[in-house]
Design a protein around this nucleic acid. Sequence first.
RNA 1: GCCCCCGUAGCUCAAUUGGACAGAGCGUUUGGUUGCGGACCAAAAGGUUACAGGUUCGAGUCCUGUCGGGGGUACCA
Length: 564
Amino acid sequence: MHRTLRSQIADLIRRALEAAQAAGDLPPFPVPDPPVERSRQPDHGDYSSSVCLKLAREARTTPLEIARRAIAHLDPLPFIGRVEPAAPGYINLWLDEGWLTAHVEAILTAGETFGRVDLGRGRRVQVEFVSANPTGPLTLGSARNAVLGDALASVLEAAGHEVEREYYVNDAGSQVRVFGESVFARYAQALGEEAPFPEDGYRGGYVTELGRQLAAETGRRYLEMDRREAVRTVAAWAMYRMVETIRQDLADLGVHFDTWRHERSLYEEGIFDRVLAMLREKGYIVEYDDAVWFRHPDLEKDAVLIRSPQVIPEPSERPTYLASDAAYLWDKLVERGFDRAIYVWGADHHGDVPRVKAAAKALGLDPDRVVLILYQLITLWRSGEEVRMSKRTGEFVTLRELLDEVGPDPIRFMLLSRTADAPVDFDLDLAVEQSDRNPVYYVQYAHARIASILRHAQNQGWGLDEPADLSLLHHPSEMALIRKMLELPEVIEQAATRLSPHFLPFYAQELAATFHAFYRDCRVVSSDPADAGLTRARLRLVQAAKLVLARVLHLMGMTAPERM
RNA sequence: GCCCCCGUAGCUCAAUUGGACAGAGCGUUUGGUUGCGGACCAAAAGGUUACAGGUUCGAGUCCUGUCGGGGGUACCA
């Protein structure tokens, strides 16, 4: 666990600028944090900084001249090969080739921890995601949420955070009652009874199926008991079944949660009452129009409803969401002491962002500890037509269907390959057909291909752990592969700081492409005895490449197959 | 009406938060196997970054406006 080359180079350049000032080569001015980036072109070295371009005015000379003077004061570092100024004022740096080749062993030694960076310094972060209502199976939209949240959690772990994955089960809202009534109606109908179906009830086929199952398992018992009590019990039973289904669907997608936090438990543990009392005490709770409201200066337009007889007809039921969201926030940041609480929400919830932030402020918590990731929604296309989705009407494509048709790896890869900000057109026909052309197989193929090479080598009598003289590696394709592997820590750093896991699939494709090019140019297992040393070195190299490919695939929650 | 997101190659998407010549995959065209996996590789074509202004050494990226698509707009969560 260490700092990235990028940040070390940034320090190096800043010290050089300061040294140039101390020596009188540059006038005094505040030296900024130099931006350092991976060069896009090989001509520009491995890293470039544009810092001198910004300093011309203060330094009273041209950017190119600033770059020259800074380079003259650069400390030598073992990993830096050469450094050159470039018009109009860039500083370009090349990594030392001996240092690069030696690092192949460092990758192998690091193993599955390769790429870790200590960005988080052990801070505790909770990523709460999916959290779909347990009133129906997960849809494709939830799949995007799941994939995004899980990869984000993995990336944050790799970046030195202590991460907990959490699913919030909304088991106390009015929707639970509506869901219970819907299932109850289907249950009664399954037993041949007339039962009123709620006006805004859940009409999906799975509700009918739940009613049928309940009838088969319990007979007429619930028809004979108190109706309100029966609906409550049926709702709890149906919700339990849905949570189990959701848990299984997510597991099959490769997503596992550390904690399933139930809204009800916030009431049972008294957290809700304490938080509501705090809000009331601080004057954020007001009552008028026969209802209870949350009011905060940041929400200039109007107050947010907490409780109303219209939405909660039964006094025994709980207030609506903002109050419980505030309680949940308190639970996260205070009761359980997370440094940061990350929420992954569909963009259709963006209107709630200011409210949660306001709730944090009202509770005296730093709103920056609350981070909301919003992802744009998925538009689903099938046979050239848009598929409208709604749990209420029962028209939607479930994650389960998609898992059966496509499999978890392509789903994860496809949904991760986009920024959260971009809406997605998901073409079902293409997703199914695409199996051979999907980039996911391109990356996995590279991994399987290396596995095959290693099997071949062992059949030829080569040992994989033999010490090798890595300085024999010098071919441009070998060097390109090493350089690409060493980018992983920076990819993780970037994905973690920007909370954007979509960099992973792009990097994975680049790494695979770099390996395939190496494979074209460089024979690994040679039958010529004169090449034995080179074979040993390349066996180490491809083992490292296999490891890095597996590492990035695992960060994305995907498998790294030995054979395909 | 007001608020948020998006508009980049024929299609699906990137572009290191303002840096060098805007890049990948798919599709199209052409080429590549006498040894480790051809689910691969190489080359070509494809762009006024929706449009019009502005900010500065420098804009796909920032500011204003226009057009187009999606979402939200508070008693559903």
